[in-house]
Design a binder for these strands. Structure first.
Lengths: 191, 191
DNA sequence: GCAATTATTTAACATTTGTTAAAGGATGCC
DNA sequence: GGCATCCTTTAACAAATGTTAAATAATTGC
């Protein structure tokens, strides 16, 4: 279904423009899969060996603590789902990634992806560029935790990703912002 | 001075093993530079166009807020100094990186590095792998801020990088851990 | 070696955030 | 449509951390 893939290929090219041939290699390796809401895409108990593009749906990554879950990532349409820890170390990771809505995903196996990286320099550089962008985003969030109050972080998220607030339960948003749900409720009650 | 470079080449290979020829290309591109303590290696006002390996010394990356500095990274021997934001976006970044001791660095210009990435697939994959590892470390720190108390984070840092505590003023450590210096003093006074 | 600066600790108090519990809303399932 | 479940808010109190300021300790520059 080409229409579904168009936003994803556009996203791929926006990360790092690929020659048509190499873009095609990547796209041809994609397999369409659908999962219901609440499906665990990646879990801590096994090595995950796919990278997923989200064509439709919303996902969250979280860790399990003693008596809490920490949500540290959200992905929406055209975002990439990847358990870095599991994928990079080839060991079961610390994170779970679940769908919060019924989803349509396109995936490529780690084996196929690695083969592309090993044999096509533009794809290798695409992979590098993708991770670089993820790193910047993560670093900015880490820094923001220190610079900005929980209230400011909420207002920013609201401004940057209003759709997220509409699609995701507030308890996950609270965790993502690094506060408890009670604190988030207080923030939302301000003014 | 080959002895100085040995730990750095070992580190390079530990990130992603490189064929001798490509390792040599990278090493041959390195230029030895020395800077005194307190030298700003990377600053927010200009685009930085080098990647540095630390042969000797210790560095910290920080951002400027209204009335505070936030330290978010430390690098020691064999670590790589890179302003992701500046380097990736080719715009002045948000971070300053300074030496906390007199330092010996080996650097490669961004131009040369990009040329290596464009022409040598193993170097492109090396660059990808390096960023992946940085991403995992950053992600873990973000998650730990939520899972663990300031005291636990301090104890962990003490266990993982005892040398850091000896070489770096506590005010920077406090900032790195995400607390004020007063709080860190309290933590250290426990027991 | 001394003065000046910088780093660290301590104290008192203010503020923020967490914890627990309960109540009210919303949603989904049959 | 109604029951059960989950989500969200609110309240009261506890704990952690921030703020300000002062005292001490360590370091640096001359």
């Amino acid at each position: 279904m080409q229409a579904e893939l168009a936003p994803i290929t556009a996203k791929i090219n926006s990360i790092y423009p690929l020659p048509q041939a190499e873009l095609q290699l990547l796209v041809d390796s994609l397999e369409r899969v659908t999962y219901p809401k609440n499906q665990l895409i990646i879990c801590t108990t096994k090595v995950e060996n796919h990278l997923y593009f989200i064509a439709k749906g919303i996902a969250r990554a979280y860790c399990h603590g003693e008596n809490q879950q920490v949500t540290f990532w959200f992905g929406q349409e055209t975002d990439i789902i990847l358990s870095y820890h599991s994928y990079i170390n080839q060991q079961p990771g610390y994170e779970n990634i679940e769908l919060l809505e019924n989803g349509i995903l396109y995936r490529i196996s780690d084996q196929a992806l690695q083969a592309l990286y090993q044999n096509h320099i533009n794809l290798a550089n695409w992979g590098r560029k993708f991770v670089e962008q993820e790193l910047i985003k993560t670093e900015e969030r880490l820094i923001n935790r220190q610079f900005k109050s929980a209230s400011e972080r909420y207002q920013e998220l609201l401004a940057q990703s209003p759709s997220l607030l509409k699609r995701v339960p507030l308890k996950h948003i609270a965790s993502y912002l690094g506060v408890t749900q009670v604190t988030l409720s207080r923030i939302r009650a301000e003014r």
